[in-house]
């Protein structure tokens, strides 16, 4: 394995339908973010990931740690994650600042946390436990939130700053999620980015959503990245932030060639390494 290559620049989220093209065609994707939950159990896809890992740096991004939940951690799940971290040696590991199961019932969704002192205490304890268990720094991603809680006691930025201060974790800044949250509330998103603790940001995400029949922006990962999101990326780069990131595309998946074209055009026009 080439351990010298580091995660940097604009990469892509690995999706199964693209796997063979990624391995067998020539392209310039510098690194890949891989969904951990797709690789929990051994199978032929592990051989492909081993091949990919031999040529590219990767990070492993999971969706099921349930960091904001209060159910006991699923120890089998954590053990599977730990196992693949050891095998595939990601440069870092990440999950979401959300909850996804409660009372043993799984939503398989990224559900919002009310920003209360009690929730903060829960998250801090769980992040500290996980970092201790994995012996790694955890990178936490901000999520889209379609409702506002009346019980919140602080802003999302205050909440994130406190978590970082109390756990030393890092942040995966999903630029699109921030913009969607602000657009849906008709608020200015630039002040959010200006106040964000950028020193803690390890990685960013960009994705494309759509406006539903009620006028609500939906974080669907089914479209090309919007220009508004790219302008934010450009302004972050101009302010001297050289952060590595990826494009996330899940539904309405174009060919790998087409997605790589989008990546290259963003890299050329909006992203300064």
């Amino acid at each position: 394995m080439d351990k010298i290559k580091k995660v940097q620049g604009l990469g892509l989220g690995l999706r199964f339908p693209h796997f063979d093209d990624i391995l067998n065609t020539s392209h310039n994707v510098p690194w890949f973010e891989v969904i951990s939950d797709d690789f929990l159990e051994a199978g032929p896809h592990w051989d492909k990931l081993t091949k990919l890992r031999a040529d590219y740096p990767i990070v492993l991004h999971s969706i099921g740690m349930n960091i904001g939940g209060i159910d006991p951690f699923d120890i089998d799940y954590l053990a599977s994650l730990k196992n693949i971290y050891q095998i595939f040696e990601p440069e870092w590991i990440s999950d979401h600042l959300c909850w996804s199961s409660h009372n043993g019932k799984y939503h398989h969704d990224l559900l919002p946390i009310p920003k209360t002192n009690e929730a903060l205490k829960v998250v801090v304890e769980r992040v500290n436990f996980l970092q201790d268990y994995f012996k790694r720094t955890l990178v936490l991603e901000n999520v889209t939130q379609y409702i506002d809680f009346s019980i919140s006691e602080m802003s999302e930025i205050e909440f994130i700053k406190e978590i970082v201060a109390q756990t030393d974790c890092k942040i995966l800044l999903d630029i699109t999620n921030v913009i969607i949250n602000h657009n849906n509330r008709k608020k200015d998103y630039m002040s959010y980015f200006n106040n964000f603790p950028m020193d803690s940001v390890q990685q960013f995400h960009l994705a494309g959503g759509f406006v539903d029949e009620s006028g609500l922006w939906i974080d669907s990962h089914t479209q090309k990245v919007q220009n508004t999101d790219l302008e934010v990326l450009q302004s972050l780069c101009k302010s001297g932030k050289k952060i590595a990131g990826i494009i996330e595309r899940d539904g309405n998946l174009p060919s790998f060639e087409e997605l790589e074209k989008e990546r290259v055009s963003i890299e050329n026009e909006f992203y300064e390494l």
């Binding site: 209060i70 409660h102 009372n103 019932k105 939503h107 559900l111 009690e118 019980i151």
Partner: peptide, 19 residues
């Protein structure tokens, strides 16, 4: 200070979605 604890809030939210 919120008057509802976090667990109650998760119960309400989760039950509503799963219904």
């Amino acid at each position: 200070m919120s008057f509802m604890n976090y667990k109650e809030m998760l119960n309400l939210f989760s039950t509503n979605v799963l219904s």
